[in-house]
Amino acid sequence: SAGMEKVNFSGGEPFLQDRGEYLGRLVRFCKQELGLPSVSIVSNGSLIRERWFVKYGQYLDILAISCDSFNEDVNVLIGRGQGRLNHVENLRKLRRWCREYRVAFKINSVINRFNVDEDMRAHIQELNPVRWKVFQCLLIDGENAGDGALREAERFVISKEEFQGFLDRHREVPCLVPECNDKMKDSYLILDEYMRFLNCREGRKDPSRSILDVGVQEAIKFSGFDEATFLKRGGKYAWSKADLQLDW
């Protein structure tokens, strides 16, 4: 009722609980009950099974798979290693399922110290996602940097110039959507598990009061969201699979 048009479920890994059954019910609720134009998920893809698409694929507009490298050794180095599961082969399988069950396929890549020199053009063109979101590695105090952080990401950080070099190498890829640090931290509306907006403007995730307690209009004042930056980075696009008019 406050005007939400799109919801994106991300993590952590959103398929962890019950192999995605709880997530599937959320996706179905957002489409059937809330009638949202766009429902999407960001996942590493390791826990997704075809039976999930059979049951819930019709309610999902976009599945974004995190893929930071097409080199398995680099994936292990970054922390994307999935044991005996080959990340790249799994990506191809998920791409095939998205096509079969009519879900728009997207790839997210975080560019960092270990993949900044990689050439991903051939792989991206083969997979042909509707969007390839390319992020510059971003430090968030308390999350991946600073005291009490869950993980330390300082060794992954690259400069703006290095990030631009990666973008220049891939500029011919038509689905490329770049996002530097300056665009990222002010242009997202992020809700945590307590339904609090997370403000990233000061380099950390400062929570608002919960929308369950004070409502959307009051809580969003403390979200740090900059609508102009959101629009400038291309945050508004054809995000419903009905509008994408894909050649399945």
Rank of each mutant, 00 (worst) to 15 (best):
Q164W: 06
Q164C: 04
L150A: 11
A153S: 08
L150F: 12
V157G: 07
R151W: 05
V157I: 14
V177E: 06
Q136H: 00
G148N: 13
L138I: 11
V173G: 03
C175P: 06
D182H: 09
K133N: 01
E172S: 02
D147P: 13
L139S: 11
E179Q: 07
F156V: 04
V130S: 08
I124Y: 06
A153V: 04
S159K: 06
D168S: 10
E179M: 15
A145K: 07
L150D: 13
Q136M: 12
R171G: 02
H123P: 11
I124Q: 10
V157Q: 14
G148S: 02
K133H: 05
N181D: 11
D182Q: 05
S159T: 14
A145S: 13
E161F: 07
F163W: 05
G142V: 13
E162V: 15
N181E: 05
N128D: 09
G165A: 01
Q125A: 01
H123Q: 02
R155I: 07
C137V: 04
E172Y: 11
V157F: 12
S159V: 07
L138S: 01
E162N: 14
L138V: 02
H170M: 04
Q125V: 00
E179K: 12
R155F: 12
L139R: 08
N128Q: 00
A153M: 10
S159E: 05
A145Y: 06
W132R: 01
K160E: 13
D168E: 12
E143Y: 01
G142P: 00
D168C: 06
